[in-house]
Design a protein around this nucleic acid. Structure first.
Lengths: 136, 136
DNA sequence: GTAGCCCTTCAAGTCACTTGAAGTTCAAGA
DNA sequence: TCTTGAACTTCAAGTGACTTGAAGGGCTAC
């Protein structure tokens, strides 16, 4: 059975070597087997698990949430619905962030519009917008 | 002239004391004058400046961007359009983040939908979704 | 043998603060 | 005047999720 070194695993799972060592350090990945020279050796199981972790991270799950999800995968006695619930909670957080960011977008757009309207074109010392921002 | 202490300044500007000390430490605020007992003393100028900084931060500008904006405010010889340009760049970043987050929202929604469809209701050991996430 | 890459560990840096510990100063009430 | 308690002081370390750097060891190919 061909064993992978850290760089190969990283490529297969779409991440990088330091991140893998970091995941091992924080206990998200089990400590890797070692080859004679002390280098980490991985197999297909590790590719699966790391791919899972990376996708969860891509989904925006926090490390702690990923830890829960990994536990759910490991322990199949527990309900898949637990994963769903976690995802549901996460969705609420994503949507909150989304709303916040939309508000921010509107603000910045109107900042730019005001700039265009009041300072249009010239390098003048009287910027109404910057003044506004300092008002109480 | 009544001078403010750090807590009062914090309240006036909508932030808090440790943050003000932090801003001073990183050079975003000038070192404060001190009263006899060594406590920081602030005036109206400081309220304006900190308010400006806080609003920029609320707008999602990074500390380094705020540093540039502060410099623009201090040096009125330079164009207000520079501030506009900075804001424009920032808007692009906000929109990129927004798109990313929208994609994420869609993914999580469909994750949940699949969960509902394939594992509906039961605490079973066969979760198609979790399986999917581990595929290469 | 030697070049060049990949690997190892450990430590520190990133961002924008927040939290905690231990001590000092100030304003107000008894 | 004394005391209480809030607000202040400094310095250090913690947060999240890595990234970057230093200093060295191992593997493969020529």
């Amino acid at each position: 059975m061909p064993s992978l070194r850290i760089g190969a695993l990283a490529e297969r799972a779409g991440t990088n070597a330091p991140t893998i060592r970091y995941y091992e350090e924080i206990g998200l990945l089990r400590p890797a087997d070692r080859e004679v020279g002390g280098q980490r050796a991985y197999g297909e199981e590790d590719v699966k698990r790391l791919t899972f972790i990376r996708r969860c991270r891509d989904f925006g799950f926090s490390i702690e949430q990923v830890r829960s999800l990994v536990a759910l995968v490991e322990d199949r006695e527990r309900s898949c619905m637990e994963a769903r619930d976690l995802a549901q909670e996460h969705l609420a957080a994503v949507r909150a962030k989304l709303d916040e960011l939309k508000g921010l977008e509107r603000s910045v757009v109107s900042f730019i519009a005001s700039c265009d309207a009041s300072c249009a074109g010239g390098p003048g010392p009287d910027c109404a917008i910057l003044d506004d921002l300092t008002k109480p």
